[in-house]
Design a protein around this nucleic acid. Structure first.
Lengths: 108, 108
DNA sequence: TTATATTGGTTACTTTAAGTAATGGAGTTT
DNA sequence: AAACTCCATTACTTAAAGTAACCAATATAA
């Protein structure tokens, strides 16, 4: 009666992309490096949570943070190889959404 | 300077799989219909949240709920066509996890 | 010199979601 | 009628996300 436990690697991966905003942040960066405020306005995330997510993703080596000494200073975020490797995940979500999601304003 | 907004269908799909537990519940059902308590023990979710998730997924027509008049009554949950169509999403997460996730207990 | 603007980020506070644990209802067996 | 099993809910606690005001650094305008 004890079914095989779920693979810890898979479980961890799921917990990453299941964290709110993470998938959208990575999706945004798939089209190239972006700055803090660009990501923020593109996906409508609060500065506080974006700051948290970027820090977490940087620690997981999914994104890279680069300080550009301009005026005022600009910070450029980009995907690492590990991050770019998530592209198939985002693409499969995109495909499924086009086939199966109806954007009906009466739905929740 | 106003970049193209994110596709609403995609955004909605992301919000579905980004909701905690949803991906794991669907993953469990990929291997066939399961009962409430089976899902619960397989992924370690609380009864309350599983109950919520199953209701939401049923409303979105991603899973199907079937009452089996046994003793005591059993409820069988299975994926609909829409739900099975999410398999590529879960598989791509699985592949990425195998290549890029290390299960190091010192990591968070 | 003082004032103001910009960028990335933080802090304090409120609201929402999830975890925990006890409880309930329907049907069956004892 | 007690007690058990399965699915589910309710009340309460804890954790995560939303909101909005604020800060440091740098630069330019008044």
């Amino acid at each position: 009666m004890n079914q095989p436990a779920i693979c810890p690697k898979f479980e961890k991966a799921v917990s990453i992309i299941s964290q709110r905003w993470t998938a959208l942040v990575i999706y945004e960066l798939l089209s190239g490096p972006k700055r803090f405020s660009e990501i923020q306005s593109a996906i409508g995330i609060s500065g506080k949570v974006l700051s948290d997510r970027l820090k977490e993703l940087e620690q997981m080596d999914i994104i890279d943070r680069k300080v550009i000494p301009a005026t005022p200073v600009m910070i450029e975020y980009s995907l690492t190889e590990k991050g770019r490797a998530m592209e198939p995940i985002l693409k499969s979500i995109e495909e499924w959404s086009q086939q199966w999601i109806s954007v009906d304003s009466t739905q929740s």
